[in-house]
């Protein structure tokens, strides 16, 4: 009796081990659907897409969450829905794009008459966007990350009146990289995606693209 039981046990153990192995195999070795590739490249141009049977998990990058600004509608949920408070999403400035405007749509409240840094003129609720005079007529705008709460107010202003150099981004030194990002779940435009950890940014205008390509306006845009 105990012998038979032991044998059955061993059999089951072997079975479970095999099942686990099968499962891992299914996850590791599998054909890709040609949509994405763990190299972080788009598979569409890759000659091995579809038939590619490389062990996906072995070469798979860790992924992190990032926000695709092209989809963002600045609803403010990044500020309120992050498990961290203040949010790990913060405004990030692509300096390479900035127009150094005197009248910055991301900085000034609408209707501001006298362009000074006084409180009544500032759009940012926490005074996190700093304005500094460089030389006539240029101003530098920087972000105090400690103060920024990721509300996206300036991002909306910059996008509407400027060239969109102020962008919301997940700051990976603050992000806990939750398995399922709570902002992603609540993002109305599904703008949060998993990106390879070695390419954690989805910012545009960092000096790698031609003006206009980002907005697809054919060379007459920034």
């Amino acid at each position: 009796m105990p012998g038979r039981r032991e044998f059955l046990n061993t059999l089951m153990r072997g079975g479970i081990l095999a099942a686990l192995g099968l499962l891992s195999g299914a996850v590791i070795f599998r054909s890709r659907d040609g949509k994405s590739c763990s190299y972080g490249f788009d598979c569409s141009g890759c000659s091995r897409s579809k038939s590619c049977m490389l062990p996906a998990a072995l070469e798979a990058r860790q992924t992190v969450w990032q926000l695709d600004m092209t989809k963002c509608i600045q609803c403010g949920r990044c500020a309120t829905n992050c498990v961290m408070s203040p949010s790990a999403v913060k405004c990030t400035h692509a300096f390479a794009m900035c127009g150094y405007c005197d009248l910055c749509g991301g900085y000034f409240k609408p209707g501001t008459k006298i362009l000074t840094t006084a409180a009544e003129n500032q759009l940012c609720p926490t005074n996190a966007l700093k304005r500094k005079f460089i030389e006539d007529p240029f101003f530098e705008y920087t972000i105090d990350e400690e103060l920024c709460i990721g509300c996206g107010k300036c991002v909306k202003g910059c996008g509407a009146f400027g060239n969109g150099s102020l962008q919301l981004q997940v700051r990976h030194d603050r992000c806990k990289n939750c398995n399922e990002c709570s902002i992603a779940r609540n993002c109305p435009s599904q703008a949060f995606t998993r990106v390879p950890a070695n390419k954690p940014s989805l910012m545009r205008g960092l000096g790698k693209e031609r003006p206009g390509t980002a907005a697809k306006k054919g060379g007459v845009d920034a």
Binding site: T92, H93, A94, E140, C175, N177
Partner: peptide
């Protein structure tokens, strides 16, 4: 001009 800082995960 300052450069844009992108923190690494």
């Amino acid at each position: 001009q300052p450069s844009t800082q992108i923190p690494v995960p």
